[in-house]
Nucleic acid binder design. Structure first.
Length: 813
RNA sequence: GGUCGAUUAGCUCAGUUGGUUAGAGCGCUCGCCUCACAUGCGAGAGGUCCGGGGUUCGAGUCCCUGAUCGACCACCA
């Protein structure tokens, strides 16, 4: 059945989506007798809508998956949704305008589950439409039962191994979310501020101190100067009286103080920043909690109690001014640490939190970063820098609602922790019974109400999708995973935490390779599109609807790993044109190869052009295969594209046309065989990128009952015997002759179909002349010359006669 | 301040291990309905490869240095 004249992506793509799903083309067979290629796909955070940036990076993993599936690997390609934790909660708060405090914990959690399911349906519809070759039987949610069970098991295992601990200590706190957060969730934000110089009093002397945070005056517990700063030498060891609040604090000397900054004297408050925390520990300073968990001033702030931090800053500054304690004010702009989810400045508040030990494992973590293969390689530096810069253990408890609960209870009588037993998992300690009474005899245990950091669960993705807890054989088959695809901004979180977990639990790396994608950027201002309003210039579904999934994937394939790419409708359009061209070439070729039972070996009588295109095809296959092995799908795509458009469509088809049209001709069989061979190889090379149009063509022209889909067809095998430098040199000469004739016609504004009376080819190279004589049929096809003479040198008279339709071309050098 | 990346045609980018005349797409110019495709075909124009040094027979490619842009990290009194 010939291919339809026109290709309509909308119908073709949705039909194939169904076909692939019905026939299980992408199903993973854990007992298949093939090496596995397993993919630790990122579970997208359920925090809004997917945008073209997601499409960009998720396409990359699919290119790789499809390549390896065609290369004899049993590909395990699951996918998940990261739907527990803060991002989902914030989505619910934003969309529904409710809070857990308002509607109650249980109702809030239900809304989170609901909105998660809704988002996941949308996500899956897009991924399917985009053509991700995921095995849809293997999906997970970070809130589902196996994930909760795995996360709680992880905690118990860490507890057993003494790799988690609970500590009452200053912790990074988001007053907006009212929870502790981890170092990895911090961002820097440049904000306007004001340097206020305050007059502290040391007996009769004034000690000027500049601060951006006058609201912390009630929490001031010491003043520091540099030990060699002569301006303040006389103050060290004495006491300073804090303006407005009156407490007397020691004046101490410490090397950390920068004499150049502010006045050179600095107040230490509990807590303004991490230096305060260090001093607090080192000098055993008292604790004054002036800011509460809600981001408002506590009773320690006296008459300012209850004010939010920004108000308090203003009010206390003004009050100090009124008392004549302000010596100077200067507007500045400075970077502050904010929570990445809401850009609200964090506080450091003393709370009881659980931490996973990472600081003491720095060396092992660094070594792990060297053992993993990073693509591109320079991304390893990001990991290394992060590990080297670690200053906190991993804070994993969150004072939130929608997450995986800690599987434990506290005994308030003796302070012991009573963990759940593994058989009970997953559980919520608030509505489950502890496995036993406390050792002290107390049976009234208090459940932990905190939940895990969402990364605590998602960092177990290899164990979750590998079914570590439930199917040991499956796990052995899939772990360590082959590839972790992910974005670069979460190297410090997802990649890092996954390595931490894998080392802590199993003592080995979670995967062999990490493939880092860049961002799809929304044109103007180059900002990351997830942060731009409205999800970027066009929604993924809109773009796919307008140009086809293949076309959008084409854009995604245009830039290599680690590089950002501006979302370009132009490029998507080029992709759409490529799809059309591929269809037209296939349709044209179909006329000659349909129903053709081609032999495996090339027939006799290959023309130089046949040998040329066959050699280039196999060279291309070799090259693309190498590139894919190194994750360079973008270069592979570019090479196939150039080959297809220029060598195959523009040149080979024009050369072979006449032989193809003439079934009785002596060299018809050679052209037909070559065309079929080259077209099939080209389709396969394009298949990872353009899964829909290649499959449609394949099913129309090549599929058999045993091989119904191109996506399980074997990748083209390189036939070294067909790679032939001499044949390519001759072919290049033939193409040059064609170009010369085309230029001749173009210069004279003739149609390319214009017939030439005589084409004279002059060559001093006897061997070349011989090959050209073997190319006469093909040269006539492309030049429309009625007669071609290959002569020894060019007849100058003929050139003058060019107007009459006779052309002479000198060939060779 | 540290680390990493980028800087090539008007625009977006490719240029593998140093090697003839630096490439592609889009845009531009001039043509062509050639019996697959006008979502096409052909022929062109267009580049001090960011600046400055150096290594080399030879540098877009390697080394040093400077500039600009971006990311990540740090600083945050």
């Amino acid at each position: 059945m010939p291919l339809p004249k026109r290709y309509t992506p909308e119908t073709a793509e949705s039909e194939l989506e169904r076909f692939w799903s019905d026939t299980g083309v992408y199903h993973f067979d854990p007992v298949a007798d093939r090496p596995a290629f397993t993919i630790d796909t990122p579970p997208p955070t359920v925090s809004g809508q997917l945008h073209l940036g997601h499409v960009y990076s998720y396409s990359h993993a699919d290119f790789i998956a499809r390549f390896w599936r065609m290369n004899g690997r049993e590909v395990y390609y699951p996918i998940g949704y990261d739907d527990n934790g803060l991002p989902t909660e914030r989505l619910v708060e934003k969309r529904l305008g409710i809070t857990a405090q308002g509607v109650g914990r249980q109702a809030f959690i239900e809304k989170c589950l609901e909105i998660g399911e809704e988002a996941e349906r949308e996500y899956q519809a897009l991924w399917r439409r985009l053509g991700l070759s995921v095995d849809w039987r293997h999906t997970y949610r970070t809130i589902d039962e196996l994930s909760r069970r795995t996360a709680q098991w992880s905690f118990l295992d860490l507890l057993r191994k003494d790799l988690v601990f609970r500590r009452q200590a200053p912790t990074i706190w988001c007053p907006e979310c009212r929870t502790a957060i981890a170092q990895a969730e911090l961002n820097d934000l440049e904000l306007p501020s004001e340097f206020v110089t305050l007059a502290f009093q040391a007996d009769a002397d004034v000690l000027p101190i500049a601060t951006t945070r006058p609201e912390l005056l009630p929490a001031c517990v010491a003043v520091f100067v540099h030990p060699s700063d002569e301006r303040f030498a006389a103050f060290v060891g004495r006491q300073a009286q804090v303006p407005l609040f009156g407490q007397r604090v020691p004046i101490l000397a410490d090397e950390v103080v920068d004499p150049e900054k502010g006045t050179g004297a600095v107040m230490c408050c509990t807590f303004g920043d991490t230096t305060d925390i260090e001093w607090w520990y080192r000098y055993h300073l008292p604790l004054v909690e002036a800011i509460g968990r809600d981001g408002r001033m506590t009773d320690a702030a006296g008459r300012f109690a209850g004010l939010a931090v920004p108000e308090a800053r203003k009010e206390i500054g003004a009050a100090a001014e009124a008392e004549g304690r302000v010596l100077a004010r200067r507007a500045i702009s400075h970077a502050v640490r904010v929570h990445e989810r809401d850009d609200v400045p964090v506080e450091y508040i003393v709370t009881g939190q659980w931490f996973v030990k990472v600081l003491e494992f720095r060396d092992q973590l660094l070594r792990a970063g060297e053992e993993v293969r990073w693509f591109p390689a320079h991304m390893q530096a990001r990991y290394r820098d992060w590990v080297e810069g670690l200053s906190w253990d991993w804070a994993i408890s969150r004072q939130r609602y929608f997450g995986v609960p800690f599987p434990l209870w506290y005994c308030d009588a003796c302070g012991e922790v009573v963990p759940a037993e593994e058989g009970q998992l997953p559980l919520d300690p608030s509505d489950a019974h502890p496995p036993r009474a406390c050792g002290c005899g107390n049976g009234e245990l208090r459940p932990e109400t905190d939940v895990f950091d969402t990364w605590f669960t998602s960092s177990l993705s290899p164990q979750i999708i590998g079914r570590f807890l439930t199917e040991p054989e499956f796990f052995a088959r899939t772990f360590p995973m082959t590839m972790r695809p992910q974005a670069h901004e979460i190297i410090r979180t997802w990649a890092f935490y996954t390595i931490v977990k894998s080392l802590h639990h199993l003592g080995r790396l979670p995967w062999r390779d990490v493939a880092i994608s860049g961002w799809g950027l929304a044109g103007e201002g180059m900002e990351k599109i997830s942060k731009s309003r409205g999800g970027g210039p066009m929604s993924p579904m809109e773009m796919i609807g307008r140009y086809s999934a293949d076309a959008v994937r084409y854009w995604a394939a245009s830039t290599g790993l680690g590089k950002d790419s501006v979302i370009s409708e132009d490029k998507v359009q080029v992709g759409a044109k490529l799809v059309t061209k591929l269809w037209n070439v296939a349709g044209f070729s179909g006329r000659f190869i349909e129903g053709y039972d081609a032999p495996d070996e090339p027939p006799a009588g290959l023309s130089p052009a046949d040998r040329w295109i066959l050699s280039r095809t196999h060279r291309l296959v070799r090259r693309c295969t190498e590139l894919f092995h190194g994750y360079d799908y973008a270069a592979a795509k570019a090479e196939v594209e150039v080959f297809f458009w220029r060598d195959l469509a523009d040149n080979y088809l024009e050369l072979a046309k006449h032989r193809l049209y003439d079934p009785a001709g002596a060299q018809h069989e050679a052209a037909r065989w070559t065309l079929r061979h080259v077209l099939l190889a080209t389709l396969k090379l394009f298949a990872p990128f353009l899964p829909y149009v290649t499959e449609t063509v394949y099913r129309g022209l090549f599929a058999t009952e045993e091989a119904p889909t191109i996506h399980r067809a074997p990748w083209p095998r390189v036939d070294e015997a067909l790679i032939d430098d001499a044949a390519e040199a001759v072919g290049d000469q033939v193409v040059e002759i064609a170009t010369a004739v085309r230029r001749y016609k173009s210069d004279r504004q003739l149609a390319l179909g214009t017939e030439l009376a005589v084409l004279q080819l002059g060559s001093a190279d006897g061997a070349l002349a011989e090959r050209l004589r073997a190319s006469l049929a093909d040269l006539k096809s492309v030049t429309r010359a009625r007669e071609i003479a290959v002569v020894d040198g060019v007849d100058p008279a003929l050139d003058a006669a060019g107007e009459a339709g006779a052309v002479a071309v000198a060939v060779g050098r």
